[in-house]
Simulated assay, not measured.
Amino acid sequence: MERYEIEAFLTLAEELHFGWTADRLHVSTAHISKTIRRLERRIGVPLFERTSRRVALTAIGARLRQDIGPAHEQIQQAVRNAIAAGRGIVGVLRVGFFGSDSALFLHTVSDAFRRQYPDCQVEIVELQLHNGLSMLQTDQVDVELARYPADHPDLACGPVLFTEPKVLAVSSQHPFARRSSLSLEDLAQVKLLRNPATMLEVWDEFHSPRHTPSGRPIEHVPGSETFLGQLALVGAGKGVYPEGGRAMRFYVRPDVTYVPFHDAAPLEWGLVWRATRETARVRAFAHTAHEVATAINEPDRP
């Protein structure tokens, strides 16, 4: 059955009047009559008894109404729910994060967001290196705070929220640990811990390149599926790991030293979500995050 046939049948079954049915559906009475006749021909039996005085369901018509009525209402409710989720800032918004520093920022954003939209609950979800993209793709989280770039045809990105210097995590026993700074060319002398294969290729190549800027090859060795696992390997002298400067404050370890790069561009952070899953909740949260980040970055603005 076509959608318009279902609507015509169920409305007529409720009104039991062709004129009133036509008025409710904003069509002509002749259109309703034609639609019902076509439906009855397809089914092979009358669905309504018609006289000059009354319209009534036949036994088969009543059974058909009983069978398809609840399913039609369920579909209509699903559509109403989708519209409410897309337009209204209500329900639950699940926001993913990598690392303690990101969690601190997101909780600040969440508090500000809830003050503006008390009917929308925010769930902060911890992600790992191996599942960040899949959690987004399978709708286990609605939006993530991630390090850019996030170039992917399925993803949409908000504005840059904050930046941090790029550093190299090395064993405290490594010769680089005694350096005040490093060059990206120095990566040709060490073994970079490999990220999980499930990460965005453009992200992995940007943060853990296969070659230095001058084209010298960089050796990669197996790493861990979690950031803490990567740091444990670094501390054990199994390799080095490029990271952001905020790790120097949030992930202090006696076996790991963070050495800044003097020739690397700052790393950028922002919110990422699936373009086809963008809702009013996502847009509002991204806007709030930008306001919070601006206030943090410019505390003395008027």
Rank of each mutant, 00 (worst) to 15 (best):
P266M: 06
T279R: 15
R281L: 01
Y251G: 01
W203L: 11
W273V: 00
E185Y: 08
E205I: 00
L200Y: 05
A293M: 12
G229C: 11
E185L: 11
E205T: 05
D255K: 11
F227T: 04
P196K: 15
W203N: 04
P213Y: 07
R246F: 13
S214K: 10
W273A: 11
L200R: 11
D263F: 07
V221D: 04
V292H: 02
V292R: 13
G244K: 08
E298F: 03
F206A: 15
L228Y: 03
V292N: 09
P213A: 04
A286D: 01
G223E: 08
T276L: 06
G245I: 09
R216W: 05
K238Q: 13
L267F: 11
E298M: 00
Q189M: 10
D300R: 04
D255P: 07
G270H: 13
A197S: 15
L267D: 04
A232N: 09
G244W: 12
Y241E: 08
T276K: 15
M248I: 03
R194K: 13
Y258P: 03
G229W: 00
N297S: 07
R194C: 12
L271W: 12
P260D: 11
H287I: 00
F285L: 05
A275E: 07
T257H: 07
H220F: 05
R194V: 06
V282K: 12
E268G: 01
P260G: 09
P222R: 08
H290T: 10
H287R: 13
D300P: 00
L187N: 07
A247L: 12
A236K: 14
G235T: 03
H262N: 12
F261Y: 09
P213I: 08
E298Y: 01
H220V: 03
L267M: 14
F261H: 13
E201A: 14
D300M: 01
A280T: 03
G239H: 03
V252Q: 14
P217D: 05
P217A: 14
K238F: 03
V282S: 08
S208C: 05
T257V: 15
L187F: 10
L231A: 02
T257G: 04
E219S: 12
K238R: 15
N195D: 06
N195R: 15
S214M: 05
G235C: 02
H220Q: 14
E225H: 07
D263W: 05
W269N: 14
G223A: 15
P222V: 10
P254E: 14
V259M: 11
L271E: 04
A197T: 14
